[in-house]
């Protein structure tokens, strides 16, 4: 896929016309996590603009797309009204499907997956189950059990329920997840 096609594809999927970006950098300047990013938001915009398949690949493998907090600061201040967070959503989903998640970001993805898994099971989020599910996943990816310190405090303050809340219409609810959380292609 060449530049033109990449731009068209992004436009089709997100409605955002990245051609309008004139590289002022205001998005990066205001981004709370720009320091930590490997590719800054405005650089991602530029790479999509001039992008080849290799550049797209680099974006999809970047840490940035997972670091983005969807805080919407960039979008709200962009002089060209470019909805970067929406593009980030698209890039993340593609990165996941194409199996290109940055190794450092696995923890973040694991967390999101645990979250949706817990929701899928009960309809509502149980923070205890989320913590357990997430810790299991992150243990697998080799990280430490860092929330040990908080959990007891949460229980003593009545903040962790041991029995998860559940919704009633589980059947109808599970329809929403049908074909949505597939395992990634090998």
């Amino acid at each position: 896929m060449e530049t033109k096609n990449i731009l068209i594809e992004v436009k089709r999927q997100t409605g955002v016309n990245i051609r309008e970006c004139y590289q002022c950098g205001k998005c990066t300047a205001g981004c709370p996590v720009a320091e930590e990013m490997d590719l800054r938001p405005s650089v991602i915009m530029r790479m999509i603009q001039s992008g080849t398949n290799e550049e797209m690949d680099q974006i999809l493998r970047s840490y940035t797309i997972w670091l983005c907090l969807t805080c919407e600061t960039c979008y709200s201040r962009c002089p060209m009204d470019i909805d970067i967070p929406k593009v980030m959503d698209y890039l993340r989903q593609r990165s996941l499907v194409e199996g290109k998640v940055h190794p450092e970001a696995r923890k973040i993805v694991a967390f999101h997956k645990s979250f949706l898994n817990t929701v899928k099971r009960n309809g509502r989020l149980s923070e205890l189950f989320l913590t357990i599910d997430y810790k299991m996943r992150s243990l697998r990816s080799g990280t430490l059990f860092q929330d040990m310190t908080v959990a007891p405090g949460m229980i003593s303050r009545g903040k962790l329920h041991l029995i998860p809340e559940q919704i009633k219409d589980k059947k109808g609810f599970s329809r929403l997840f049908k074909n949505q959380l597939k395992k990634r292609k090998p």
Binding site: T70, D89, Y90, R92, Q93, L96, H112, K113, L116, L176
Partner: peptide
């Protein structure tokens, strides 16, 4: 929450 729009547009 954040998880859904990070991972899955439809959800």
């Amino acid at each position: 929450a954040t998880a859904a729009h990070n991972l899955n547009k439809e959800l």
